[in-house]
């Protein structure tokens, strides 16, 4: 009915957080500004992945809701917002499916972040050696 609104709301929050971090990176003028930029650049890059996952998923789900007639282009946009019974059902679906969708996408992103961070740490630890074939 309107389950995509929950991940879309999360997308708004994560996008704002990303923008704030980017602004702080750009305006950092203290002595350790370079250190701050180095520390947060990876986080910003990975936050952008979450933003794209949430916005992309919400966008395609909104299209699906439009297809099924649950979303209209005229106010109040959601057909379920017309009467109280449908509204209750819509809110229940948002609280169950919507929250679950946002949680699953966030967990998948966390998994991606953990794996890529482990790869990055491993790449930093492995010393570069010149083998006979390279030389």
């Amino acid at each position: 009915m309107a389950c995509f609104i929950v991940p879309a709301a999360e997308a708004v929050v994560t996008t704002v957080a990303t923008k704030i971090l980017e602004k702080k990176q750009a305006t950092a003028t203290t002595a350790d500004a370079e250190l701050f930029r180095a520390k947060t650049s990876t986080l910003v890059r990975k936050l952008r992945w979450l933003n794209k996952l949430l916005w992309g998923g919400s966008f395609l789900l909104a299209f699906e809701h439009l297809w099924h007639g649950e979303l209209t282009l005229a106010f109040p946009f959601l057909t379920a917002a017309g009467d109280a019974a449908s509204m209750t059902e819509m809110l229940r679906e948002m609280a169950t499916s919507g929250v679950a969708m946002a949680a699953v996408v966030t967990l998948a992103w966390l998994g991606l972040v953990l794996v890529t961070s482990a790869w990055e740490r491993k790449a930093q630890r492995v010393p570069v050696t010149v083998t006979e074939t390279d030389a």
Binding site: C3, F4, P7, W49, K52, L53, L54, W55, G56, G57, S58, F59, L60, L61, E64, T96, S97, A100, M101, V104, V105, A108
Partner: peptide, 21 residues
């Protein structure tokens, strides 16, 4: 190519939840 990847993976995860429900 990361654009369609993120779009489709995001939607797939959400539809997976829909399918489980």
């Amino acid at each position: 190519l990361s654009t369609p990847c993120f779009l489709l993976w995001g939607a797939s995860l959400m539809w997976l939840v829909d399918a489980v429900v």
